[in-house]
Amino acid sequence: MTVMTLPARAGDRPRTGPSVPHVQLTQNSPDEIRRQLERWMATALPSTEIRPSEISEPGSTAFFLARDARPPQGAVLLPPRLVAEFAHIHRDGSLHVALSREDQDELVAKGWGERHPLYSPTVNVVMLYGPRTAGELEVAKTVVASSYRYATGRPLRSAEPGPL
């Protein structure tokens, strides 16, 4: 399995809610950056369906495996079903995604996100902080592509993050 490689995120980590709903409270994505990420996700993730999240706050856009698809053995996607929703984007621009343990470690170590307060072996949810710039948008695409690969077992053609 390929592990994503991320640059270090600039600046301090944003403040996030300590419990549910787990949202980003500071350093939110500008609306246009969030819209660009949503548009990219809507067109770049084959064999997926877009609909309201089964677990997130109202207004979150979620990405599911196509109805006849199943994740690879051992992959744990987002609750409640654990086999369908692999990512959702909040109105603040942050995302919750399912990732391999190695990719989670990279995300957290490089300052791009954190594990959900309810994280466990059966609640495989990590937060990707909302991108603030065009460069951070490219990093977000890399993370989403890794979530897609984890959920489907297939790589998504994705460029490595550009300069920040």
Rank of each mutant, 00 (worst) to 15 (best):
D12F: 03
V144T: 03
M4F: 13
T48S: 10
Y148V: 01
S94Q: 10
M41K: 04
E136K: 09
T133N: 09
D92F: 01
L78E: 11
E114Q: 15
L78T: 04
H96F: 08
E38S: 09
T61Q: 12
D12Q: 11
L37T: 14
D105I: 06
V125D: 01
A44Q: 13
V76F: 07
S56H: 05
Q27P: 02
T26F: 01
S19K: 15
V126R: 09
D68Q: 01
A84C: 05
K110Y: 07
S56C: 03
I89L: 05
A69N: 09
A8P: 00
I50Y: 04
G17R: 11
R51L: 07
P30S: 11
Q27S: 10
P30C: 13
H116S: 13
P71K: 02
E54W: 04
I33V: 15
R91D: 15
V144H: 02
S56W: 01
E106K: 09
A62T: 07
V3T: 15
G59Y: 08
P72A: 06
R70V: 03
Y148N: 06
V126L: 12
V3E: 13
E49R: 14
A87R: 00
V125Q: 08
R15P: 00
E54K: 10
A87W: 05
P131E: 03
R35H: 07
Q36L: 14
A145P: 01
F63E: 01
T26S: 13
R154P: 07
G93S: 12
A75E: 03
N28I: 13
V20Q: 06
V126S: 14
K110D: 04
R154G: 04
E106A: 13
M41D: 02
R101A: 14
R157M: 06
G113K: 09
